[in-house]
């Protein structure tokens, strides 16, 4: 059972990690907790459903399930990425120099807006996520098993995280992002277009959240207008656990949280599975507010 719970935890954790990256990237640059991010995740799931429906109507990729999923994932990531950029432009940019509470409230506003928009325009009922990947279950010795869906979720997530890591570490825009997150004023004086870096950050963070939405929809088989809330808060917990603002921290935090939650569900009670995440959030905030990888932050003078 331990092994099985680890596999489930890894699956859950990779989804949390993808969402957590969106929180941590934005926080790293703007010191803003983007509460609209859980709705970006939800929108990603819907964009996934819509693009699968369109592909079906157009009869493309129908015989090739992996191609189908890859294209739906890409379409959803592009749409959520653009949505993220629009949200930043409309809701946060005008408040760039306002007190920090203002964009936070604006973020909550965007979150409420997107939820209600989807509820009214699409449906208040949950929608079935179209079947794509044929479900295989692979035995892993003993009682443990892993499904084809779980394999895809883990592989896609890890690949996206690796790509993000390489992008941040080695590219010019990645360096510009790191420079901006360390000292935006100086970055400007070194010729970096900080507004563009911020837009890019929102695009990447939202696209990763959108990917997580699609994977989550595939895993649970349905999407709903309020599906973002719980995973969003858990991913935020993961980001805090890893040290908010730290990219590797968000990845590790996501996996740690997913695994702890699965173990808790397996060994204690699945009815309490949401409780574990929030107990962890409270414990981290009390005993190690800077997170696992975060450094103690001294206030700038």
């Amino acid at each position: 059972m331990l092994f099985q719970q680890l596999i489930n935890g890894l699956t859950l954790g990779s989804i949390y990690a993808l969402i957590a990256l969106g929180y941590t990237l934005v926080y790293g640059i703007l010191l803003l907790i983007n509460f609209a991010h859980s709705e970006i995740f939800m929108m990603g799931a819907y964009f996934g459903v819509f693009s699968l429906m369109i592909f079906e109507k157009l009869h493309i990729f129908q015989g090739a399930p992996f191609m189908l999923v890859a294209c739906a994932l890409a379409a959803s990531m592009i749409c959520t990425g653009l949505l993220g950029v629009i949200v930043e432009f409309a809701a946060y940019r005008p408040l760039r120099n306002a007190p920090r509470l203002a964009p936070l409230i604006s973020a909550i506003g965007v979150s409420i807006f997107l939820q209600n928009f989807m509820m009214i325009v699409v449906s208040p009922e949950s929608k079935t996520f179209p079947d794509t990947i044929p479900l295989h279950v692979y035995k892993l010795g003993g009682t443990a098993s892993i499904s084809s869906l779980q394999v895809i979720i883990i592989v896609v997530s890890v690949a996206l995280m690796a790509a993000l890591h390489l992008f941040i570490k080695y590219t010019k825009m990645g360096k510009a992002m790191r420079a901006t997150s360390q000292d935006a004023e100086t970055a400007k004086l070194m010729g970096i277009n900080v507004n563009m870096v911020i837009s890019l950050t929102f695009f990447i963070g939202a696209a990763l959240g959108g990917a997580a939405g699609v994977l989550n929809g595939m895993y649970y088989g349905s999407v709903k207008y309020n599906m973002g809330f719980i995973p969003g808060i858990k991913a935020f917990t993961a980001a805090v656990l890893g040290g908010i603002g730290d990219v590797r921290g968000a990845m590790i935090g996501g996996f740690v949280l997913g695994i702890l939650e699965s173990l808790g569900a397996g060994y204690v009670s699945s009815a309490y599975k949401d409780v574990f995440a929030f107990v962890i959030l409270i414990l981290v905030l009390v005993f190690r507010p800077q997170g696992l990888l975060g450094r103690k932050i001294s206030n700038k003078v």
């Binding site: 010019k172 825009m173 360096k175 510009a176 420079a179 970055a187 070194m190 010729g191 970096i192 890019l200």
Partner: peptide, 12 residues
């Protein structure tokens, strides 16, 4: 390299 960024062509 961050300093050199603004001299690099090629957009996002």
């Amino acid at each position: 390299m961050v300093g050199y960024t603004c001299r690099m062509r090629g957009g996002m």
